[in-house]
Design a protein around this nucleic acid. Structure first.
Lengths: 356, 356
DNA sequence: TTGAAAGCGCTAACAC
DNA sequence: GTGTTAGCGCTTTCAA
């Protein structure tokens, strides 16, 4: 083996050439030859530097720097059975909605996974057959763990991944199974809606309506409960002030018209910015001025909320912190340490703009 | 070697167990043992099925299906020196802008790279030291090729990647080097702006202003040229009708006020939706009704344009087709076939909404 | 058309 | 503290 190493070193120009010669990628053997140590010592220098004598370590580190060496990831993966890749199912933002939530989340995810030595691998999760996408990744040992974001409409994949013994962290609570033990991070939607409702109540509004989603959406129900709770606390009537529907713009528009015809609310708290934009459209159609005639608060602090005129007040999710929490849990999972606090519920904030 | 294979097959429960036993991932050897052929034959069945006799192929395929076998990607990478991964530098959408362009683009990218057997790997490209991010990926042979999207502010990374001998396809033209030979896909911004301008002219507008970016942004200059050309073609005066600035909402707002004070345009063509949203804000402040008093057209067809009230007319980029073009070129690059048409310029469309 | 041998670059286990 | 051995699962010769 010694012979082979020496031979390789001779074969590789970079060993005698200048730093960063891109013609031939240096390997452990190249570095070892240059530093005058064995390959294993170089490996240790990288993965277990504490094992080496200071002097040896120095030599090796210099050789690594000189050659611009980076370990071959495929070889490492093959040996360690770990790819240092995190799988993220990627779904397109729906057209006609205000959400581009994922952008902020994904970026922090990418940054902080890199800090723990991992990369993010995107894969398309078929809506119909989500399991297949995950299964493929698992079978070919393409990723070490997953980040699951689709806990919106009940999440069969969580159950599947757990059964399959795969590592994952969810962005979103296990609504269907409150006793689930997998790690997750989520935002306190009820607190967000409560924040918005209290804000309007503080500004003197007494007839505050809720524009929510259909009952089968636990996230919507959660947010709604924050509105309901706050209204009760303030002794405000909620009769016929709660609308429900799919979360589309058009729903928001129609529901607003209906509410205005019925109970004439002066404040509107919406389950999403998309719904809120629909509400603004209805007000626009009636010649009512948002913020003056009627206050509106959205949910998500989307880019649309930020650039709309008038600017839409909105509940902002701490997506960066969520990503941080997710990665923290991932790291524990990946290093086989217990996750002491599997669930993390973060508090949203309220961004006040022109509409309230 | 035969002995080893047989031994392994014995060790692996799945060989004698039921399909999809997740406890031990099947390998080539497992499949070979079950199909009663050698490992190489299985490998050939996967990579070169034409070489096999029909009967053998059938046997192997059945064994693969039974075991739910997927090749180990790390082992394959190590051997072939290819990871079947495409690197995509990922930058966050800027807050306060209407753009979430990338979402549509990235999704099609993920889908169509999967179709050619590749995955998309996200990595953070430091704004300051972009090269380092790429270099790391290259050194550790983490990806086979890149998709470069940051051709906005002059693209040093294109020059670097080319020098480095890396494979890549750019979303965006090589503005600085029109004679560059690398593959790229882009949208005809001039045509988009021309579309918008002609649309307004057709509706009777004669004083049509341009709200653009600073001169150093080639994309902005390109789009501007479409406005200019159309104005000339229609014999319309452009004097003092062209504004320039950073592309912020606030710039759009101020520039609109300034234009209204000066030349009182009846139509506004904007370099981006963000600028257009700023223009709408200015109109709002003046009590002018967009679409009735003044027509506004944005650029990008962002979610904000779609959900705003009134709905913002906007030039829509064919992001799905762009991603398709990018992947098509990537595939040729990766299979070492020549890219016959390195540059592909696609035509945008105009989405007319309430503001025009 | 199928099979045997070799080895990609790395690290775990063990020797020294 | 450092070196040696073995082998992860795959594909690329080359031989039969």
């Amino acid at each position: 083996m010694e012979e082979r190493d020496a031979e390789m070193a001779r074969r590789v120009p970079a060993a005698g050439g200048h730093a960063g010669d891109p013609s031939v990628a240096p390997t452990l053997a190249t570095v070892a030859a240059r530093a005058g140590v064995s390959r294993q010592t170089v490996s240790n220098a990288i993965n277990n530097p504490a094992l080496l004598a200071e002097e040896t370590l120095g030599k090796v580190e210099r050789a690594i720097a000189d050659l611009g060496y980076s370990p071959n990831l495929a070889a490492r993966s093959l040996r360690t059975r770990a790819t240092r890749l995190i799988g993220l199912p990627f779904e397109p933002a729906q057209e006609g909605t205000a959400n581009a939530l994922m952008d902020r989340f994904v970026h922090t995810l990418v940054e902080s996974t890199r800090e723990i030595g991992y990369h993010v691998l995107l894969f398309a999760a078929d809506a119909e057959d989500a399991e297949q996408g995950y299964e493929r990744m698992l079978r070919s040992t393409a990723v070490d763990a997953f980040v699951v974001t689709e806990t919106y409409r009940g999440s069969p994949q969580v159950e599947y991944l757990q059964r399959r013994g795969a590592l994952f962290v969810a962005f979103g609570r296990p609504w269907d199974a409150p006793d689930a033990t997998h790690p997750w991070v989520d935002v306190d939607g009820a607190a967000g809606a409560a924040l918005a409702t209290a804000h309007l109540a503080d500004r003197g509004h007494e007839v505050i309506a809720w524009l929510g989603w259909t009952t089968d959406q636990p996230i919507g129900e959660d947010r709604r409960s924050g509105w309901m709770r706050t209204m009760r606390e303030r002794g405000l009537d909620t009769t016929r002030l709660s609308a429900r529907g799919d979360g589309t713009l058009e729903y928001g528009r129609r529901a607003t018209h209906a509410l205005l015809d019925a109970r004439k609310p002066t404040g509107l708290v919406c389950a999403s910015d998309t719904v809120a934009m629909g509400a603004l459209r209805a007000l626009h159609e009636r010649g009512l001025a948002p913020g003056r005639d009627i206050a509106v608060v959205g949910f998500d602090d989307s880019l649309a909320a930020q650039v709309a005129s008038p600017g839409l007040s909105s509940v902002r999710q701490p997506l960066e912190d969520i990503a941080l929490g997710v990665v923290e849990r991932l790291e524990r999972l990946l290093t086989h340490r217990p996750v002491d606090e599997p669930g993390l519920l973060l508090q949203p904030t309220l961004v006040v703009r022109d509409t309230s």
